[in-house]
Design a protein around this nucleic acid. Structure first.
Lengths: 154, 154
DNA sequence: ATGAAAGGTTCATCTTGTCAACTTTTCAGG
DNA sequence: CCTGAAAAGTTGACAAGATGAACCTTTCAT
């Protein structure tokens, strides 16, 4: 990539990094608030919405949900319990390994999740300040950042 | 599905926005995990760390903490209780309005908060993939996004 | 002086999250 | 075939976060 000899143009690389981190923190806070709000508007909690979102691509075993969300499996049990009680998901034993329970979104569940996703006007406000090509630049930067980091589930 | 008579230059502006939102969601998840971990390493919870971080610029009334964190004041009571019990903050009545309690970080509290901030190598990994000028671009884009949105506390 | 409004706290209640103990199922070796 | 270890989920106890209603104290405008 780019060897960094002495660098006269860049006064304090750390300064920029630090500011980016701070900005990111604010953005994260903003995003979080919006997400919780949007979920609450459908009487879902953030955690429930996250699980439901994970199931968009198909049924998943409990354990995998837990891993993707970086929490204990026993935690997922409760969340899925509540989602199931409200008809948003179903639990079904895996045919090949009966220890495994596959969690699948019901029609209602997917609908709610999709609706929430659409309603996430989070970035509409913040992103509205950026022009189309700027969004593209932002997208590429974010892509590279995430590619560099440990690939999350999603 | 998408009949877009206008817009000839940009194929699908919505497509990019959507992807940016998704990337942002992943970044938010990543950040969140790192933050909780870093806080836990100092035996603080995420919420406690957030409150402590807010106090970096000086003492704040309970109500303002609640507003900045978008939650009920009664919630802050508990968090500050626990921070106070461990000597990270103090509660002091405001001289001008004795209804108001000013929460201030103690030396230990500021130190812990500052340490946590430093240790937040969150972005080091992801940001490592970006060169200096790319970081600058990213910083500027993030700045504008946040300026466009409702200014959070910070 | 009175009463409304604001700032905090308390209490009940729920959800999230962890950890340890437990059940069921799978699977490798003997 | 049997036995026992390991894996997947669940359960129960418990702490923290979050909300909403009721409450106390202080302020402030009549």
């Amino acid at each position: 990539m780019d060897t960094q000899p002495a660098q006269a143009a860049m006064p304090q690389p750390d300064e920029i990094t630090r500011e980016v981190v701070d900005l990111m923190a604010n953005l994260v806070a903003l995003f979080h608030r919006e997400y919780e709000e949007a979920a609450a508007a459908r009487s879902l909690t953030g955690a429930q919405a996250k699980v439901l979102a994970l199931l968009r691509r198909g049924p998943l075993p409990m354990r995998q949900i837990a891993q993707t969300l970086s929490c204990e499996p026993s935690n997922i049990t409760g969340i899925v319990d509540r989602l199931e009680a409200r008809g948003f998901v179903t639990r079904e034993a895996d045919r090949h390994d009966r220890r495994v329970k596959l969690v699948a979104a019901t029609g209602t569940g997917s609908a709610a999740s999709e609706e929430l996703r659409e309603s996430l006007n989070f970035a509409r406000e913040p992103l509205a300040s950026l022009g189309p090509e700027e969004r593209t630049v932002l997208r590429d930067l974010l892509r590279r950042m995430l590619a560099g980091a440990s690939g999350p589930g999603a």
